[in-house]
Computed example of a mutant assay.
Amino acid sequence: MQLGADHVRVRVPATSANLGPGFDALGLALGLHDVLEVRALASDEVVVDVVGEGAGEVPGDASHLVVRALRAALELAGAPQTGLHLTCENQVPHGRGLGSSAAAVVAGIVAARALVADPEVLDDATVLRLATQFEGHPDNAAPAILGGATVAWTSAAPGHEGARAVRLAVHPDLEATVLVPSARLATSHARGVLPASVPHADAALNAGRAALLVEAIARRPELLLEATEDRLHQSYRSGVMPTSWELVQALRAEGLAATVSGAGPTVLVLSASAERPRLDAVVDDLLSGADEWEPRRLAIDEDGVRAERVPRGARTAPVGGW
């Protein structure tokens, strides 16, 4: 497999996983993006320039997660490895439960897809399987790839092995508000406090609520509060993100469908557009004087990751110019 381009641009969204009861399964793509440009170099050199989130923190060499994912995808496609110049303009916060690592992995794989002569060798199903090998679970990678809301799972059925996902319908009035704290939390730490087993009654409740959440997201936003109830993971993680858990409980006491976003510590609130004035008032009241929280209302990203080949001589586009 030969390369079909030497300069590509990729845009990938932030994601929120779990959405309450859909642990390791449900996810939502959000209107906050990382934009990357990749140039293939004739030398073996790898250069990584980062602006925005992660600048000065993430590696600037071949150990960068985007580069590792890109190289793994080139190897899978049977394409030659090259030197790389990677430029990242990052908006997705790191370590906040908004899918920054999934965004990096998906962006790297899809950059490889845009570089190779036959992109179909890295179709969406292959991208998801490879991304899951990096991530360990597909709940963030699926909405980053497909956009909108998704259900993802890992299958052992003959002929369907590996990570799989489907898109869900999303009600046009659904809105997402994220309350992003200044504190970070490693996913490994958040997962490490989960119990090996839970009461049968709690598992049964979550199964029902996850099914109801599919209906609430697609057709019945008025059911979001009940549909986002969870007993599998959030309360067990309260000790490692006490402020986030307190905020989730306070918002839910006001009738708002608040959950921990992914492994936290960001708080996600799902709502219908008609709830916006009351949501704003409640958030303003609860966060009054709390400078460590940044509220942001985000659109639902319906596109998922996008990539394009950049013609020779074309100027680099800013994030807002996609």
Rank of each mutant, 00 (worst) to 15 (best):
V180E: 08
A263Q: 01
S235G: 09
A79G: 12
N18K: 00
R96A: 02
P195S: 03
G99F: 07
L224M: 14
G162W: 11
H64K: 05
P318Q: 14
S288K: 08
A274G: 14
H189K: 13
H94D: 05
A72N: 08
A73I: 14
G148Y: 05
D6H: 07
V66R: 01
Q249A: 12
G136F: 14
L122G: 00
N18Y: 00
L115K: 03
R209I: 13
L146S: 13
W153Y: 15
H171S: 11
G192P: 07
A17N: 07
H94L: 09
L212K: 09
A17Q: 01
S238A: 07
G320D: 05
D202E: 10
V12R: 00
R113G: 09
V267Y: 00
A131K: 09
A210Q: 15
P277D: 10
R184K: 15
T87A: 13
Q91E: 12
P138V: 04
A203M: 03
A29E: 02
L115H: 03
S238Y: 00
A165F: 12
S16F: 02
L174Y: 10
E308S: 11
D303W: 14
W153H: 10
A274F: 13
R276P: 03
G108K: 02
E254Q: 14
A103L: 04
A5R: 07
L232K: 06
P21G: 12
A272M: 10
L185G: 04
V269C: 10
L224E: 14
P295H: 12
H94F: 10
V8T: 03
A77R: 06
G83T: 04
D139W: 15
Q91H: 14
L256V: 13
P13L: 12
P277F: 09
I217S: 01
A163N: 05
